[in-house]
Amino acid sequence: MHVVIPYVVGALLFGLGVYGVLRRRNAILVLMAVELMLNAVNLIFVTADVSLRSALEGVVIEAWANPGAAAPGTGGVFTLFVIVLAAAEVGVGLAIVLQYYRMRNAVITDDVRLDAEEERIAG
């Protein structure tokens, strides 16, 4: 398999996620688009790790510059960190969305007011 295919798929997934964040009005769909972008980054991390390791196979590298000696599978480690970050983002994001839904009975992002002071004066 060519190494370009996962990079293109990752770029397409990331672009689809950006489109979802910019165009969607529902907060749940925005969170799903952010998850799509994070998964695209995971795909690129793992692909870059595998492709660079296969490209450097047999190349003698100085001991201080050898990334394989200090941290084997760096792309996988970064991917695990991104998965943990995504789980935390989903937990906090869904809690905020549910609280907002309880207050307003809607999760349309265009109607969210970020200035609470003005809302208290007007309401």
Rank of each mutant, 00 (worst) to 15 (best):
M1E: 12
H2C: 12
V4H: 13
Y7C: 08
V8Y: 14
G10P: 04
A11E: 12
L13T: 02
F14V: 06
G15I: 04
L16A: 06
L16G: 04
G17N: 04
V21R: 08
V21Y: 07
L22T: 14
L22P: 03
R23V: 09
N26D: 15
I28K: 04
I28Q: 03
I28S: 04
L29A: 05
V30W: 00
V30C: 01
M32N: 13
M32H: 07
L38A: 05
N39I: 03
A40Q: 00
V41P: 00
L43V: 05
L43I: 07
I44M: 03
F45M: 01
V46Y: 02
T47M: 01
D49V: 01
D49G: 00
L56D: 10
L56K: 09
E57W: 04
G58Q: 04
I61F: 05
E62N: 07
E62H: 11
E62Q: 07
A63G: 13
G68I: 15
A69M: 13
A69H: 12
A70T: 13
G75C: 15
T79M: 11
T79V: 07
I83A: 15
A86V: 05
A87F: 14
A88D: 06
E89P: 05
G91L: 08
A95W: 15
A95T: 10
V97N: 01
R102E: 11
R102L: 11
R104L: 08
N105I: 08
T109H: 02
D110H: 06
R113I: 07
D115Q: 09
A116M: 12
E117R: 11
E119F: 10
R120T: 13
